[in-house]
Amino acid sequence: MKKTLLLGLLIGFCTTLFAQPSQKFSAYLFTYFTGDKGGEAIRFALSNDGYHFRALNNNQPVINSAEISATGGVRDPHIMRAADGKTFYMVATDMNTEKFGWGPDSSMVLLKSTDLIHWTSKTIDITKTFKKFDGVNRVWAPQTIYDPKVKKYMIYWSMRFGEEADKIYYAYANKDFTGLETEPKQLFFKPDGGACIDGDIVYKDKKYYLFFKTEGSGAGIKIAVSDKLTSGYVLRDKYVQQTKDPVEGAGTFKLNDGSGYILMYDMYTQGKYQFTRTTDLENFKLIDDEVSMDFHPRHGTVMPITEKEAAVLKAKWGKSE
């Protein structure tokens, strides 16, 4: 009995001693596009602190839009790290305003990488994949989140039928992240019937916070909260942007030092981004005077990365400072 107990303690000690350490995130990768007509391509920028960002590759695309999209342009890129810690998923709107104007747009692009440099991709046309959605004319701003309950990756995006208001839908990606294995379902709609676009979900303290842009009776960024990922979202009747100018493309990321979260968004009529900080995802403080960028992004997202991953990106696309 004593020998068995001693052996068990020894095995536990060795397991702890030689276990792989958890990844330490010490930098941030900002993926974004720069605008209409020529700017609809994925670009990267780096930051060491989440406040000061520098564009990689001289602010030029790191992926050729013509090779990954049906239209030759992509917008609204969202990037995330997979649950395995070493795979990366990116999704984007398949859209080229220079060639096709503002739609109809019915496709999204799914990308996958293991090194942040080389990406495989697949274009998904919602109207062709799911016949019941052949009346859709907007498939905008897709994002991905891991659903631990079903152990699958959920893609959610804004979608519109005809002249109806935009609503947020979701579907689960297949194992290879090359398509959707479930039919789209409605995730959220604005109670007053107004449009809602640019969804961004953050998980904190066992709750899901859905940031989105409202349109119709009032416009701006609001939050709906639920304790379940795919249902039950309750709207908070409060705008969270810290400006009276029009905004869109909310993106929220957690600071590596644990000091809170950054909510950023595109002030698209002013040609600039605005940054705010929060600790509770309810009260937001303007911090534009603490932020600097050497580029002008549009809708994009930020993902924490390791020092090693930042070094790989710098080696490929140039220094960030």
Rank of each mutant, 00 (worst) to 15 (best):
Y172E: 14
D205Q: 12
E67S: 15
Y209L: 09
R277M: 14
N64F: 09
Y89E: 11
V150R: 10
Q23P: 03
M154Y: 03
P148T: 15
D76G: 01
N283K: 10
D245F: 00
F130C: 13
D257V: 09
K222G: 03
S65W: 05
P184M: 12
A27F: 00
V91F: 11
I42H: 04
E321Y: 04
A311D: 07
E248D: 01
Q241C: 06
V139M: 12
P148Y: 12
R277W: 12
V302H: 03
K308C: 00
F30R: 11
C196L: 01
W102H: 12
M264N: 14
A27M: 11
G194N: 05
L229F: 13
L187F: 10
D227Q: 15
W140G: 08
T93G: 05
A310S: 08
N48M: 07
F284N: 04
G101L: 09
G73L: 12
S158M: 02
K128A: 13
Y209W: 05
Q143I: 09
S121H: 11
Y261H: 12
E321L: 09
L7M: 06
K206N: 15
D176L: 07
S47E: 06
D205M: 08
T127V: 13
T214E: 10
T306N: 03
P191A: 10
G216R: 02
I11C: 09
F211H: 08
E40P: 07
H78D: 06
K99G: 12
D289G: 00
F88N: 09
L235W: 06
K112G: 11
G179S: 14
Y208I: 14
K285V: 10
D134V: 10
D125A: 13
I117R: 04
G73E: 14
Y268D: 05
T123Q: 08
F211S: 01
L263T: 05
Q20E: 14
F188H: 02
S47H: 01
Y153T: 13
T276Y: 00
E183T: 11
P246I: 03
E307N: 10
K99D: 05
S106D: 02
D192V: 06
M267E: 11
F53Y: 15
N48A: 10
M80W: 04
Q186L: 15
R75P: 06
Y156W: 12
G251M: 04
K244M: 04
D280V: 03
R298N: 06
L5P: 01
D115G: 09
V139C: 12
C14G: 00
F133T: 08
A311S: 06
F44T: 11
D237H: 09
F133K: 07
Q242S: 03
T129S: 13
G260H: 03
W140K: 01
T114I: 13
Q270S: 09
Q241T: 02
E290R: 07
D105I: 14
L5S: 02
D288C: 05
G300F: 03
Y268K: 01
Y146G: 04
Q274C: 03
K314S: 08
F100H: 12
F88D: 08
D266F: 07
T97N: 05
W157A: 03
L111S: 15
T71N: 09
I262H: 01
E321P: 06
P297G: 07
L187C: 13
M90G: 02
M1I: 07
I262Q: 04
M80I: 15
K185A: 14
Y51A: 05
E181P: 09
K149Q: 15
T276Q: 04
F130D: 15
T144A: 08
L10I: 11
G218D: 02
A27S: 08
